[in-house]
Design a binder for these strands. Structure first.
Lengths: 193, 193
DNA sequence: TTTTATTTGGAATGAACGTTTCAAAATTAA
DNA sequence: TTAATTTTGAAACGTTCATTCCAAATAAAA
């Protein structure tokens, strides 16, 4: 019976994500979103409820796309230490692609909205847990293979790497020099070996 | 001849900084600032020109207060490696003081506004240079005293530490567990010794 | 083809935004 | 005490904000 959505939901989310990624949540207006998508206001509200929900959906899609891209690349690594290195290589590639980086949507969101909005904070907590679990798995496996030292537990190194990933993404906003970024990466890895 | 400002400019800046620190630039309204200071709109505009200028002044005051606090504490360190450790200890103290941390005003500002506003970007660049210079000085001195290894140059370790400081401040927004934060700090330092 | 459910276009909503205006109040130098 | 100069208070400015409304357009089901 009903008329059906004519637009490509995935494309729209991608377009909106670009805007949010560039300007952040608060500086992005509904008008910006209308302009970026070419959709009518009504269609946006009809399909995404409101700005907040739309942002949350962008966040979730961004996360799952990052995870997909990550596991694709990591599958090509020959060992878990190389996997960890690859994570930073992916970031370096992204940061040096454009002259100035927008940082990580999720890190930026944490800086802007953590502890202010319940649903956002929940998302960030869950994202953090997922990342820590992934990292701990990699570190533990690498420690079993004696690729990473055992001065600290897998949990501790996971936390260290997680903190470094956030710092790395922040640093990349102002520094886009490949050599400097690679130096940071190598120093981070140096701790593990 | 003139009537003179009756309010304490330093206090007002401190009050406004609290609001900006908590909510960020875009989510803070002039009404929030009026409420926080008890001043009249006119007085604010008369004394600080506009919201943007006011924010910039908060940012600069925040930076210089941090630097003052930093050099006070660092002067008590018995050697440059201890100084570096103290930097992270100060952050840990701040992060665990309140249940949930607001992060670093400057890191948050970088995430929200870098590469969007010229005067802000200039401030951030200058702040980054100052921090890197300070860190390089500490590392180089510590290397001369054989407190820090020479696997990498002072510049490289400074960059590593700078990136880690940003990550540390971001991590502290969601994690306020002292043991976890100390573990991260110790792992960061482990690289140097 | 008609019915039914839904998406659209475009205008309108009221609230909140940063900023301005201007007369009144205040203070110091003359 | 007067004159000069600035800060205040309170209201108003025009603009933009997120969101809503409703009629028109649309498309699948009957």
């Amino acid at each position: 019976m009903p008329k059906v959505e004519t637009f490509d939901r995935g494309l729209v989310i991608a377009q909106v994500t670009d805007v949010f990624h560039d300007k952040g949540f608060n500086a992005t207006s509904m008008q910006d979103i209308v302009d970026a998508t070419g959709l009518n206001r009504s269609s946006i509200y009809n399909s995404f409820e409101n700005k907040h929900n739309l942002f949350l959906e962008c966040l979730k899609t961004y996360k799952s796309k990052c995870n997909t891209q990550l596991s694709e690349k990591l599958s090509k690594a020959s060992n878990p230490l190389e996997s960890i290195e690859l994570i930073f290589d992916i970031y370096i590639l992204e940061m040096t692609k454009d002259e100035q980086d927008k940082g990580c949507l999720i890190v930026n969101c944490a800086s802007e909205m953590a502890n202010h909005d319940v649903s956002i904070t929940n998302f960030l907590q869950k994202n953090q847990n997922d990342m820590l679990t992934l990292l701990e798995g990699l570190v533990s496996k690498a420690q079993q293979d004696h690729l990473i030292n055992s001065k600290r537990t897998g949990k501790e190194y996971a936390l260290y790497l997680y903190s470094n990933m956030q710092g790395f993404r922040m640093t990349g906003i102002l520094i886009s020099n490949k050599l400097e970024l690679e130096s940071i990466k190598n120093t981070i890895i140096q701790t593990l070996i």
